[in-house]
Design a protein around this nucleic acid. Structure first.
Lengths: 139, 139
DNA sequence: TTCTTCATTAGAATTATTCTAAACTGTTGA
DNA sequence: TCAACAGTTTAGAATAATTCTAATGAAGAA
């Protein structure tokens, strides 16, 4: 079995694992997203990558699928830029550098960074997540 | 001199202080923004507040002015929600709770919270700011 | 296979925001 | 005091990202 086929069956298994029907589009997107090292994508960038491979998936489906994957816990959404939404294949505990000039994200391992002194949340509220964004620019 | 007039002259002084010509619109917006305790506004919410007072300022001007105030250091922009941009009258060192259910921000004093272990930024880059967002939801 | 349900899609619609070009106003210098 | 310039405001059009809609298509159970 070649690498592409292996990626495909892993993608199918992953989709089944979270209860998503493995349709052609979902399988192709999951293969692309999870075939290599962790990556940060926008709906546009993923759609372009897909199109570049000769695959045909509508932008609407890319949006739908990114959200479904996020709800299923396969992806995590990162809010750093008012202009566009990023999705991260790394769903573990970690934070980000954001290169403001290029709009690029770089992971910071969760072990490295610590946030201390977060006050008690307002009553009736629980902490969902603590996000740290280290905004950097050209020196 | 009444409170409104006092707010107005303070607003004019503040605008002059940062080199912005005190036009009617800027003065009215600055008066509203800085008359009381710190607040978090969106362009829409500020425009509604303005309109509610019977003042007439176009939405485009509200956007322009918020950005001018931000560049001048009178405001700070907060990115927490992909859907809309928030502006904060508190430009000092602090962080935020974000109530995801209502889209509300609450300040966390900078003295309370500490971020440790931020790795060296990529070469040629300098840290512009470290933002911490504590996302909370109804328990 | 066949049916039912869920998914995909093109294109229209929505939302936040920015742009444009014309009309207007604060400030400066005579 | 006021003309004139430069900077501002504005309505409305334009953009960009994202979501919605309604019709078509495909996955899975029986």
């Amino acid at each position: 079995m070649g690498k592409a086929a292996r990626d495909t069956s892993k993608a199918i298994a992953r989709l089944r694992g979270v209860g998503l029907r493995p349709t052609r589009q979902r399988v192709e997107l999951a293969s692309l997203l999870f075939k290599g090292p962790d990556q940060h994508v926008t709906a546009e960038s993923l759609h372009e990558e897909v199109s570049g491979q000769g695959l045909k998936i509508s932008l609407a489906t890319v949006y739908n699928t990114l959200h479904q994957f996020t709800h299923a816990g396969l992806l995590r959404q990162v809010v750093v830029d008012a202009a566009r939404g990023y999705f991260d294949t790394n769903t573990g505990d970690h934070q980000h550098f954001f290169l403001e000039d290029e709009g690029t994200l770089i992971d910071i391992p969760g072990e490295d960074i610590t946030v201390a002194g977060v006050p008690q949340p307002p009553s009736g509220m629980t902490v969902d997540r603590v996000d740290v964004v280290v905004r950097v620019k050209r020196a």
